[in-house]
Simulated assay, not measured.
Amino acid sequence: MIDVSSRESRRQFYTSTAWRKLRRKVLIRDHFECQWCAAEGKVTMSDQSILEVDHIKELEHYPEFALDIDNLRTLCKEHHNQRHERFEFRKKGKSKKKDYRDDEWWG
């Protein structure tokens, strides 16, 4: 079983040759396309967004599936962050702040 208990052990895992080769296989299998975007009917590929390979069963809780290709999927950075509820992801309907003014128009 792979040790992922510390930041250093996770760094070693994600820089390992085994992970890099498997990550590449997952990207090829998923046609370099975010699987959640595809399920929504959108196409998000590596030339449009950063693609990340996600562990479906979380690495820290299921280290035995760390290198199981059936436990991996390609997600764009936005969906990967959404899945882990991190960074600047805001749940729809939770934030009152807008990133734009809906009264603006260009004439």
Rank of each mutant, 00 (worst) to 15 (best):
K98M: 10
A39Q: 08
R23T: 05
G41K: 04
Q12F: 04
R7C: 08
D70M: 04
W105Q: 02
R90C: 11
N71R: 00
A38R: 15
G107L: 10
T44F: 11
L27M: 13
R86S: 03
E40I: 02
D99R: 15
K94C: 09
V4S: 05
G93F: 03
R90W: 10
K21H: 13
W105V: 01
T17P: 11
E8C: 05
Y14G: 11
F13Y: 12
N71C: 03
C34R: 09
N71M: 01
L27K: 12
E58D: 13
K96F: 13
E33T: 15
R83W: 00
T15R: 15
Y62E: 02
A18S: 10
D68I: 01
H61S: 08
E8N: 07
S9D: 05
K21E: 14
K98C: 06
R10S: 11
A66N: 03
H84F: 04
K98V: 02
H61T: 04
S16H: 15
H80Q: 04
R10A: 12
D3N: 09
R20K: 15
R101A: 11
S16M: 14
D54Y: 07
K57Q: 05
V53P: 05
G93I: 03
N81E: 09
H84A: 10
Q82S: 10
Q48N: 06
F13I: 06
L67G: 04
S46G: 11
E78V: 07
